[in-house]
Design a binder for these strands. Structure first.
Lengths: 122, 122
DNA sequence: GTGATATATGAACATATGTTCATATATCAC
DNA sequence: GTGATATATGAACATATGTTCATATATCAC
């Protein structure tokens, strides 16, 4: 991980630095998680995991502005988490990939685990 | 998912609405992912997945301000992703849980998958 | 006790991000 | 062709978020 130049890293830390994945990968990773890190987008993904839906339906489900939904779908599409198929004037969105569901479920497992074992919040 | 009141959701969408997890869970889920959605925090988690480290060492590794690191460690601690053990004047941080590693790895798999199958960016 | 070191934290600030509003584009029914 | 409908998108705006700076607190060596 070449964030600090090697010669600036104390010797004891060199091996830690060397075991870290390349920086570029870490940027992509945080970019990916950032997309999941918004309530509206999570709700959209969740809805799409149940069924493919057009923009208007998603907006109705979440009781949100069509424009807001379109903007967020754009973000999700750029992250390759959803795909579109145009049908007439509608745009039908769906999950792009089963990876999405896996990441999702993994998160769920953590949240649930967290709710049980220990107290709430803080 | 009681975001839109049931009587405002068109009948065809009712079953989708009913299959969605409760809202509160979705908030917790996006909160969790949001914490992973920052480069600094990802780097910290990544470093701690190699070895437990004190604040100063993390700051040296990432070539960042000690204060910035402390602030982010606070966020990570609140999300229960890291734990602290004080030793003298140092605070030794480590991953709280193997779940962290799992979520992490899942993300990696997606990123890698993405890099291969298809073109870069956009 | 003193001075040095490690960490935590509040305030200020700059930047990023999400939503709304207005509007453009495209497709439909007629 | 017209008017209606579905979606996308830029600009403006408000809010959230991350970093820095200054400083408080705690522990160490002496």
């Amino acid at each position: 991980m070449p964030i600090a130049r090697k010669d600036e890293i104390p010797p004891e830390l060199r091996n830690v630095a060397e075991e870290m994945p390349p920086d570029e990968l870490l940027y992509e990773l945080s970019d990916l998680f950032r997309v999941f890190g918004d309530t509206t987008r999570i709700k959209i993904l969740c809805a799409l995991s149940v069924s493919d839906l057009c923009v208007a339906d998603i907006a109705a489900l979440l009781a949100m502005n069509q424009s807001a939904i379109s903007h967020q779908l754009r973000v999700l599409k750029q992250a390759r988490l959803v795909r579109v198929a145009r049908r007439g004037r509608s745009a039908i969105y769906g999950l792009d990939d089963d990876h999405v569901r896996t990441i999702f479920d993994q998160g769920f497992r953590h949240v649930r685990h967290d709710r049980h074992g220990r107290g709430r919040d803080e």
